[in-house]
Amino acid sequence: MTQAISTREGWSAFVSETLDKPVPITRSELDALSPADRAMNREARKQFMIRGPVVNTAQFAVIETEIRRRLMLNQYKSHGKLGVIVSGEPNIGKTTTVAHIARRFERRRRDVGRAGGANSIPVVYVCVPPSCTPKLMLGEFAHFLGLPIRTHYNTGELMNTVASVVAACGTELIVVDEIHNLNQKYKQMREASDTLKQLSEKCPGTFVYAGVEVEASGLVDGSRGRQVTSRFQIMHLHKFENAGRARASWADLLVAIEGSLGLIDQEPGAILRHATELHNATGGVIGDLTGMLHMLAMDAIDDGTERLDLDGVFGAVTASAAKASR
Results as ranks from 00 to 15, higher is better:
residue 2 T to C: 08
residue 5 I to D: 03
residue 6 S to G: 13
residue 13 A to E: 15
residue 14 F to G: 05
residue 15 V to C: 05
residue 17 E to P: 03
residue 22 P to T: 02
residue 24 P to S: 11
residue 25 I to D: 09
residue 26 T to P: 08
residue 32 A to T: 09
residue 35 P to F: 10
residue 39 A to D: 13
residue 41 N to I: 09
residue 46 K to G: 02
residue 49 M to K: 00
residue 55 V to L: 01
residue 56 N to I: 00
residue 60 F to G: 00
residue 65 T to N: 14
residue 75 Q to E: 08
residue 80 G to M: 08
residue 86 V to C: 04
residue 89 E to W: 09
residue 90 P to V: 01
residue 91 N to A: 13
residue 104 R to S: 12
residue 113 G to S: 06
residue 117 G to P: 10
residue 124 V to C: 13
residue 125 Y to Q: 03
residue 129 P to N: 08
residue 132 C to P: 09
residue 133 T to W: 06
residue 133 T to H: 12
residue 134 P to I: 07
residue 142 A to Y: 00
residue 144 F to C: 07
residue 145 L to Q: 05
residue 146 G to K: 08
residue 148 P to G: 10
residue 148 P to V: 13
residue 149 I to E: 13
residue 154 N to Y: 05
residue 154 N to S: 14
residue 157 E to I: 06
residue 161 T to C: 10
residue 161 T to H: 09
residue 165 V to K: 01
residue 166 V to F: 06
residue 166 V to Y: 01
residue 170 G to E: 02
residue 170 G to I: 01
residue 173 L to Y: 00
residue 174 I to R: 07
residue 174 I to L: 14
residue 176 V to H: 05
residue 187 K to M: 09
residue 191 E to W: 11
residue 191 E to V: 11
residue 191 E to I: 08
residue 192 A to R: 08
residue 195 T to L: 07
residue 199 L to T: 04
residue 202 K to C: 08
residue 205 G to R: 00
residue 205 G to L: 03
residue 207 F to P: 00
residue 208 V to D: 01
residue 208 V to S: 01
residue 212 V to N: 12
residue 236 H to N: 14
residue 237 L to G: 05
residue 240 F to S: 01
residue 242 N to Y: 15
residue 243 A to M: 15
residue 244 G to A: 11
residue 246 A to H: 15
residue 247 R to C: 07
residue 252 D to G: 05
residue 253 L to I: 06
residue 253 L to W: 05
residue 254 L to C: 03
residue 255 V to N: 09
residue 261 L to P: 00
residue 265 D to F: 06
residue 274 H to D: 05
residue 287 G to S: 04
residue 291 G to S: 05
residue 291 G to Y: 02
residue 292 M to S: 05
residue 308 L to A: 02
residue 308 L to G: 01
residue 310 L to T: 06
residue 311 D to M: 11
residue 311 D to S: 15
residue 312 G to R: 13
residue 313 V to C: 08
residue 316 A to F: 07
residue 316 A to L: 10
residue 316 A to E: 15
residue 318 T to K: 14
residue 322 A to N: 04
residue 322 A to L: 12
residue 324 A to M: 15
